[in-house]
């Protein structure tokens, strides 16, 4: 019996794209907010997946892009929060030193902040990837209205 691998590829694709986009957005926002304590960043974390699913139910049709969008909504705040905490944990002496040496914000981000803070961010990204790959509630919620589990395999 031939094994249909397509659901696995779909899961990986959704999780991969979701992680990449969340990282880009989350790092940007976290770096932007790194100077202050942004407690409200935890707020989207309490958003239950069913509500997210309910929102996406109103969108017509189910495509893998929508699955990605749904996954991002739940993953992005978590990543932002982790990255924000990682950046804030850095000794400000390094950033100050880099600035007094003439480095721009962009250069400080890539050459100083990221190399020093990548571990917790990487850990968060792995978790986000795993969660997006195995997220079933959202997919089921969205898929159920179309009453066609096959869609999982053939977007």
């Amino acid at each position: 019996m031939p094994i249909d691998w397509s659901p696995l590829w779909l899961s990986l694709r959704v999780a991969g794209v979701c992680t990449a986009l969340s990282l880009a957005l989350g790092l940007w926002l976290a770096w932007l907010l790194a100077g202050r304590a942004a407690r409200w960043l935890s707020l989207p974390l309490v958003l239950p997946p069913t509500i997210v699913a309910a929102y996406f139910l109103t969108r017509p049709g189910f495509t893998w892009q929508i699955a990605v969008a749904a996954a991002i909504v739940s993953a992005f705040p978590y990543l932002t929060r982790s990255a924000h905490a990682a950046f804030r944990n850095l000794d400000p002496a390094y950033e100050d030193a880099a600035r007094s040496l003439g480095a721009s914000g962009w250069r400080i981000f890539w050459r100083v902040a990221m190399p020093l803070a990548y571990r917790p961010i990487l850990a968060a990204a792995v978790l986000v990837f795993a969660r997006a790959a195995t997220e079933f509630l959202l997919t089921m919620g969205i898929a159920s209205i179309l009453a066609s589990p096959v869609l999982m395999a053939r977007p």
Binding site: D91, A93, Y94, D96, A97, A98, R99, S100, L101, G102, A103, S104, V112, P115, L116
Partner: peptide, 20 residues
């Protein structure tokens, strides 16, 4: 003028060589 355009070398008591 922002710090990175001031061209002031600044040696503080804090250990600030980049550890990586």
């Amino acid at each position: 003028v922002p710090p990175h355009r001031r061209r002031c070398g600044y040696i503080t008591g804090r250990d600030a060589l980049f550890p990586h």
